[in-house]
Design a protein around this nucleic acid. Structure first.
Lengths: 258, 258
DNA sequence: GTCTGTGAACAACTTCACAGCC
DNA sequence: GGCTGTGAAGTTGTTCACAGAC
């Protein structure tokens, strides 16, 4: 489609690689922990260990943001926290709605990690009339009928879908029509969205399946290539290699707009 | 460390790329849906659309598994379901334990996607004595004291950690000591594990932060480069580009074994 | 001497484009 | 004509290794 040449037409001011963006929250979490322990500075080596990456990668990542370190010393923790927060857009307030208040929706509503990162659960929405008015995590559940009004009144641009798979696309369409432009999807379905809307997905069973793949492979090696078995004998970073994987999704582009 | 040359020393029988492995569950889900509708065959184009990827990628992925399609026709749905299931190790039964039966743990216990994919929730474990014996999703919660015995009695090799961050490493250590070699971690912490143990993580707030990054960028463009605004005007796949990202984690290697 | 920042080399992944089979 | 399977080209991401600042 289109010409097929020259991707990424406009839409890039400074161009931080996606892989780097995906790691910034990791660094931020590690830095926040250091900050709470009043650690003033940290080296790339230490921070990398705390975030679970290697130091070269971390330094490269930070180099895309700017030169925020001091050679021979390291990085100022507070300053870096601020810079990364700003880069991620966490210095502003993001009202989010959660649609589908089952077990998972309730877990999300109760999850402390949101509030501490600039996210504010503006509303909980469920299709079950019996849920309406019932407070979950201190927030009264509202009925799906009012979805559009809730989105607009609260200026919500990020929606979380935690409904059953069958309802997800319909909810998604309504969210998008009401003005939501970023969606975090927990339902095991591929969502179709128009251009300009971002979708990220988390599928719990996909993660387990990937683990099963590696688990099976381990079991196979144990009996097959008699290299060392698996009782903690392997001298090299075998596990580091096989587990250095990409994450749950390859990509969730704005699929099938037509 | 080590020599620093020649990665991936042994540990690769046929070498399916990680990126491909991560997409196999996606294909499997789409195929299962087709199978339930009794669709006999599917083309790479159709299946790719259903899975939310492009067809070239899908064909390349399948080529790593073998030549399971028919030129001019497409793929036999049932046959592919079987082949992918086998490759992922889902033709066998995987008993899993879930540790930490809070909101999230309960959601996981109730999640239907596990059972339908060869995973069996063998036990629920929580540190709160008040929870012990209480059934969640029809399974009685057991106390952490019995963790080692539960793992061994059930031959569990996959563990799911849904505890608070503070307890995660300790739980992880006990799981590993008891014989678990694959861990799915929902706690917002980096886990240290010995070689040979795989860790995958899901962090709900990290996903939101990545969305916030893109959301912020959209808002910035709206006012800055007056290209088209965002009222569904963009003619090209801008969103497809910015959302074609990697997933929540860069990698979770076996960090800091020492 | 320590530690960052970064070009250059390397590796992984994706997309193209078309040969080969139906 | 239709569609898969796959080398080759292109793109993105990671690691190395060292110059340069402290």
């Amino acid at each position: 489609m289109a010409t097929g040449r020259t991707h990424r037409p406009a839409t890039r001011s400074r161009g931080i690689p996606e892989a780097t963006v995906a790691r910034l929250p990791l660094y931020l979490r590690a830095l926040t922990a250091l900050s709470e322990r009043s650690v003033p500075t940290v080296s790339s080596e230490e921070l990398a260990a705390a975030a679970g990456v290697n130091s070269a990668k971390l330094r490269k990542d930070f180099s895309y943001l700017g030169s925020y370190g001091t050679r021979g010393v390291g990085y100022d923790v507070e300053y870096l926290v601020y810079q990364i927060s700003r880069e991620l857009g966490l210095t502003q307030d993001w009202p989010v709605v959660i649609v589908g208040i089952g077990n998972l929706g309730a877990a999300l509503a109760n999850y402390g990690g949101f509030a501490s990162r600039g996210f504010r659960v503006a509303a909980l929405i469920d299709a079950d009339p019996a849920m309406a008015g019932k407070p979950v995590a201190g927030i009264p559940v509202q009925h799906t009928d009012d979805l559009e009004k809730i989105i607009k009144d609260n200026g919500v641009s990020i929606g979380v879908i935690a409904t059953p798979a069958g309802a997800a696309q319909q909810v998604c369409d309504r969210l998008v029509a009401a003005g939501v432009t970023s969606i975090l999807n927990f339902a095991p379905t591929v969502l179709s969205v128009p251009d300009g809307v971002d979708v990220r997905k988390v599928d719990l069973s996909i993660e387990l399946q990937i683990l099963a793949f590696h688990e099976q492979r381990k079991a196979g090696e144990e009996t097959a290539a008699g290299d060392g078995g698996l009782p903690a004998a392997a001298p090299r970073g075998v596990a580091a290699d096989t587990s250095a994987d990409q994450g749950p999704d390859g990509d969730v582009p704005a699929v099938m707009p037509a």
